[in-house]
Design a protein around this nucleic acid. Structure first.
Length: 500
RNA sequence: GCGCUAUUAGCUCAGCCGGUAGAGCAAUCCCCUUUUAAGGGAGAGGUCCCGCGUUCGAAUCGCGGAUAGCGCACCA
């Protein structure tokens, strides 16, 4: 077998570039220098010289840097891209030292280049930099995907997000918006007196939600630990502590469950608590927060998601859960108060609850199947059954219900909020009931009570409204992204053991 | 976890009634030189995802596996 045939095509492409790298070094050039004195970016120049006439030029020299994305006419024309946009370079032997012109053939698409030159608009109208000198800032050894079709392979896009970002400007745009959405959220809350806090991700028991946790182990403490499924129980402890009457946390939760276009094992949650208010206040806060983010990041409250127009302008519609179910199924579950009766009614419309499911759980199942798909425009679904909401305060007018709402947009649960349960005796009873009704193979219900959380409540927690917003899904909506993987820079994937 | 679909050159894709692979782009060399997916020419580049099987012969058919996407289940 010849030596050549043992090399892959990629190896050959890479070796060609390594040869160029060595040629640069032989010419006394460091292909990986330390700095470049950048004085302008592409977008800035396009803005500044928008009025420059074709064929004319300015005398001011700028230093611009970025990645080479295309080369035409043997390097005479180069497309240079930085985070602000693209600008064409005009590298002509009349304006550049002869030795430097020779170096042009050692450049490749993908290299990071710094250039010095005046701005000029070509006779054909393309704003360009008439390069007088250039400096290689990083020699690229691996070829980028072709310029026309770009990178479309979903697996490579997610595994090597950096290529995805280089090739697909809309991907950069999405992550830019993600960053803005999160900082707008922070700004909004901080401006209104909320204090940002951090609570444990590594917890001795995973509480505050119903989900299967990731299990890990601490060696020195010699104990099993869990990655948090929610920060709720710790944030409430802080409310007991009185650190601030308004607190929030934006951070990761981890749930050891299925992966789908709407679920990633680690995802970002906003949870906030405000003392002395109830869930009514949380509804107002939710719609004001979400609509303000849309306005500030997108410049509009009217968005379009996968072809569906959604208007985020407050106020948002409110409907009780039982009322919503009645509206779409004609079944009034307030007339069927026992679980067997409710199950009977559910079966009539093709929803089949499991034996032993509670009244509230049956309504929830009917809601999910029969109502949820219709809720495209923002709507607060209020007053949930008590038995599926162990952390919410009983409804002041109806003991079977709690003061809880979930905000639906595009059918998705975007927010979940309650008048928080602050009665330590009731809270203990609810958590005990939950544990007692735990079924075989249920990995989602905690095995034991978080005694310290109950102890904290016994010291006295102020009445409070609490709100959780799934940030990734909100970002999906605001960026028109079909998959949660499109808004998480490195989504969870199985590692590959081949060479990809 | 189950089902469906996909996996061929660095990238984007053809080829799939079984006869041991093709294009465009990129890369290399030559020509041209104010281009915009620049143009013209030449040559090169492949474990057809992996394994086993059927067959005279498998990229193509069968079985098993890997990874991904989508759907279902679980959930936010």
């Amino acid at each position: 077998m010849s030596q050549k045939s043992t090399q892959s095509s990629l190896d050959n492409l890479r070796n060609t570039r390594i040869q160029k790298l060595n040629d640069l070094i032989d010419n006394g050039i460091n292909p990986y220098p330390y700095t470049f004195d950048r004085t302008a970016c592409a977008g800035e120049l396009h803005e500044k010289y928008a009025e420059l006439e074709p064929g004319s030029e300015d005398s001011k020299v700028y230093n611009v840097s970025g990645r080479i994305m295309a080369m035409r006419n043997n390097g005479m024309f180069v497309d240079l891209v930085d985070s602000s946009g693209k600008i064409q370079l005009f590298i002509h032997k009349d304006h550049v030292n002869e030795d430097k012109i020779k170096l042009l053939k050692l450049l490749d698409v993908g290299d990071i280049l710094g250039v010095y030159g005046a701005v000029r608009r070509t006779p054909r109208g393309e704003l360009s930099i008439k390069v007088s000198d250039f400096k290689i800032l990083s020699k690229s050894l691996l070829p980028l995907p072709e310029k026309w079709h770009g990178l479309t392979d979903t697996e490579t896009r997610y595994r090597q997000r950096y290529i995805d970002m280089i090739m697909n400007p809309e991907v950069r745009e999405t992550f830019l918006k993600r960053s803005k959405i999160i900082s707008e959220t922070r700004n909004y809350l901080i401006q209104r007196g909320f204090l940002e806090v951090e609570t444990p991700m590594l917890q001795p028991q995973a509480g505050g939600a119903s989900a299967r946790p990731f299990v890990t182990y601490h060696n020195t403490l010699d104990m099993q630990m869990y990655l948090r499924i929610a920060p709720e129980l710790y944030l409430k402890r802080l409310l007991v502590g009185g650190l601030s009457e308004k607190i929030f946390e934006i951070n990761r939760n981890f749930r050891n469950e299925g992966i789908s276009p709407k679920h990633n094992p680690e995802f970002t949650m906003l949870e906030l608590y405000q003392a002395y208010v109830d869930y009514n206040e949380m509804m107002v806060l939710t719609e004001n927060l979400v609509s303000a983010i849309a306005q500030n990041v997108l410049g509009t409250m009217e968005i379009e998601y996968q072809g569906k127009k959604i208007n985020l302008k407050p106020p948002w519609q409110r409907i009780t859960m039982i009322g919503a179910v009645k509206k779409f199924t004609n079944i009034d579950f307030s007339q069927f108060l026992s679980a067997p009766e409710a199950a009977e009614e559910a079966k009539k419309i093709g929803v089949n609850p499991q034996e032993g499911d509670s009244w509230g759980s049956i309504i929830d199942q009917v809601f999910e199947i029969k109502v949820e798909p219709h809720l495209i425009q923002p709507v607060h679904i209020i007053d949930y059954p008590r038995d599926i909401s162990p952390l919410a305060k009983p409804h002041r007018d109806d003991s079977r219900l709690v003061e809880r709402f979930e905000t639906r947009i595009n059918g998705w649960e975007i927010a979940n909020a309650f008048s928080e349960l602050t009665d330590p005796i009731d809270q203990r009873r609810r958590l005990e009931n939950q544990i007692n009704s735990r079924r075989e193979g249920d990995f989602e219900t905690p095995v034991e009570i978080d005694e310290d959380f109950l102890k904290a409540l016994e010291y006295g927690m102020p009445p409070a409204g609490g709100l959780g917003i799934g940030i990734d899904r909100l970002i999906m909506l605001l960026t028109d992204s079909a998959s949660i993987r499109d808004v998480i820079s490195f989504p969870t994937l199985k590692p590959r053991h081949d060479n990809l």
